[in-house]
Nucleic acid binder design. Structure first.
Lengths: 209, 209
DNA sequence: CATAAAAATGAGTGATTACTCACTCTAATA
DNA sequence: TATTAGAGTGAGTAATCACTCATTTTTATG
């Protein structure tokens, strides 16, 4: 129901604050940040408009507070753990690693679908969002994935060539699955498991050696 | 300079109208449709605000008039022509077809970069845009590409399986190139030809048989 | 040059915007 | 029960919004 609460359940939020966040997530996802007024959010949440500004100094601060926990949990905690699983050979092949990531992040993406939609929609317009994204996704997690790619290149399991290029090709295919599944053709009946396996097979044929 | 004029150069537009369209493209691309005011566009174009509404009944009509010609020319005229080239064997292989499309559409995408950015940003918020996209991209061109895929499947050049899945995988890889090149990492120095060839090789290893 | 049509103008419209603030309510503690 | 601090309120504010319209300027044609 609430896309949000399970992520930062430790934080103590007022009942009304949760209503505000839920209403904001739905409104921002549907109409965009600039297309949503604070009075709309207040009405949808069933609170007074002033209540929003008691908890968040500005409308933008509300957006940031929604986005931050999802960006934080999108890759960081798993990539580091998975790098260790690669190094201690819990994952015997790159394919094992890709398959684990795919299924693991699938659950997260589907649980935080609306917030991720907001992030994709708003990132071109807010420098702060770009900074948050760089901080929690574009630096450490990416360098860890590059390490993993190099590891399997050295084992001769992946083709040679720039790890950045290999990352781009694999990431495009995986992102393409989720974008097709949830944005381009959400109403189509999908055989999810079949499509996921086809995507993994495509990636491995493309960059395996 | 103007992303626009070469597409519909036949249409007779006022000097001021061209300025308005150019200013609107830049503003919408940078701040989004909802984040751009008509007074901002007027100032940037160096015209009175009333002039905008003399030519376009509403702000949204201005958006549509910018977007339509680019969507119209994105795939339709080339896919039909290329299907014939496939059938009369001007393209001897699927790889030839993919390479031709890639380079051909690359020029178009780079020429209409800002407008394409606007389309991607605004399509979730405007039903009219989705209708235009369905009309000019999602129906005829896609069914033609599926025909081409089936053609090369029958020749044994592509793997078997759902043509939709094959299309999704190839399109993800190609779109991933342009998104990485122009949105995710536009400031990075790219060896374009090398990356394009790596992408085509990836696709062909992934779906070739 | 005279005339008419089209293009352009900019002050003005009511509605809506994000945000403020003086005030009330609620619940926990002494 | 009295006190107090934070939560919640909603009317109010100045700024900005998309859009209008009476008027002026430009352009094309005789």
């Amino acid at each position: 129901m609430t896309e949000w609460e399970d992520i930062e359940s430790t934080e103590k939020l007022t009942e009304k604050q949760k209503l505000i966040i839920q209403a904001a997530i739905e409104s921002f996802a549907e109409k965009g940040f600039a297309g949503t007024s604070t009075s709309t959010i207040a009405k949808k949440a069933g609170v007074a408009e002033g209540t929003i500004f008691r908890h968040y100094k500005t409308k933008k601060e509300l957006l940031i507070s929604i986005v931050i926990p999802v960006v934080k949990h999108f890759l960081t905690p798993f990539i580091v753990r998975d790098l260790n699983k690669v190094l201690d050979q819990t994952y015997h092949s790159f394919e094992d690693f890709v398959r684990a990531m795919f299924h693991n992040r699938k659950v997260f993406i589907e649980k935080n679908k609306k917030t991720i939609k907001i992030i994709l929609q708003e990132i071109p317009f807010h420098e702060e969002l770009r900074d948050i994204f760089k901080r929690y996704v574009a630096t450490e997690p990416i360098s860890k994935v590059l390490e993993i790619i190099r590891h399997f290149q050295e084992k001769g399991e992946l083709i040679e060539g720039s790890p950045y290029t290999i990352l781009r090709l694999a990431a495009s295919s995986i992102a393409g699955y989720f974008i097709a599944r949830h944005i381009v053709a959400p109403e189509v009946a999908w055989n999810e498991e079949e499509e996921i396996e086809a995507t993994i097979a495509f990636i491995m044929r493309g960059i395996g050696s």
